[in-house]
């Protein structure tokens, strides 16, 4: 466990920084920690290796030891009404997108709805956002990020992975990258906090993977051609089908015919 990140320029993100060689899952660890103590907003947990890293409800996340950034950050977005929480997906996905555009100088960094980050047609980063909610509203948010940095070889079961190194050819120093990533994430979070939600929504839409393009989609047993035209308030994906109808889809109700869900 170390205590500070070099060259950190954030106001609060990662000011409390706790590093571990190995954890089950940084999100679970942070959630456990919170049960027993108060932690400052921005507290960041990082592990070099997670042996039970999680994707969507139980799907595992594979990462080679020491080559990627596996982190969880604590936020208190108590200012967001429960019904508008999807904007967290937008803000944090934009934070990672901003960072990657800055760092690997590649314009093809896009957000695959709702919060996967793609470089070209390959996935470079995944996110797991966990909120704690009671009658008063959101209590806390744990943002888990798995960003492929230096990994060059991926297990076969990972559908379409890519890393920063595979794109740029450079080897990155993880600590340094983390400090930069944190400042981009914090900037978007502060934008959210300062009620600049329309900016976030606009930027999210323009960063969306394949928005406005004609593609084949699969929904249940139906295969159809359509275009993503936007995202509903609650986060559902709006697709305009070839027959002219626009339908809003939830997670797992739709995917691209040529891409994993």
């Amino acid at each position: 466990m170390s205590s500070s990140l070099k060259d950190l320029t954030t106001l609060f993100t990662a000011r409390d920084y706790r590093y571990f060689r190995e954890l089950d899952s940084t999100n679970s660890y942070l959630a456990e920690l919170l049960k027993n103590q108060d932690l400052a907003e921005g507290t960041l947990i990082r592990a070099s290796y997670q042996h039970a890293g999680r994707g969507q409800t139980g799907e595992s996340w594979s990462s080679r030891e020491d080559s990627n950034l596996l982190i969880s950050i604590l936020f208190y977005p108590v200012f967001i009404p429960v019904r508008e929480l999807f904007i967290l997906n937008m803000a944090f996905a934009l934070g990672v997108t901003d960072y990657l555009k800055f760092r690997i100088n590649q314009e093809e960094i896009k957000i695959k709805w709702p919060n996967d980050i793609y470089a070209g047609d390959e996935k470079i980063c995944g996110m797991l956002i966990e909120n704690s909610i009671n009658t008063k509203g959101v209590q806390h948010t744990i943002l888990g990020i798995g960003l492929n940095v230096n990994q060059e070889i991926f297990p076969e079961h990972v559908p379409n992975p890519v890393s920063m190194k595979l794109i740029s050819g450079k080897e990155y120093v993880l600590d340094e990258e983390l400090a930069v990533l944190c400042s981009f994430l914090e900037a978007r979070y502060l934008q959210l906090k300062n009620s600049n939600q329309s900016k976030i929504k606009d930027d999210y839409l323009s960063a969306m993977y394949r928005i406005g393009e004609e593609h084949d989609f699969v929904s249940g047993r139906e295969v159809f051609r359509g275009r993503i035209i936007g995202v509903e308030e609650g986060g559902k994906l709006q697709v305009k089908k070839q027959d002219g109808n626009t339908i809003a889809y939830g997670l797992k109700e739709i995917r691209f015919a040529d891409k994993p869900a």
């Binding site: 929480l85 967290l88 709702p114 919060n115 966990e130 909120n131 909610i133 609650g234 986060g235």
Partner: peptide, 8 residues
């Protein structure tokens, strides 16, 4: 779970 936000 709402659009990949996991809410306890």
């Amino acid at each position: 779970e709402a659009m990949k936000l996991f809410n306890e």
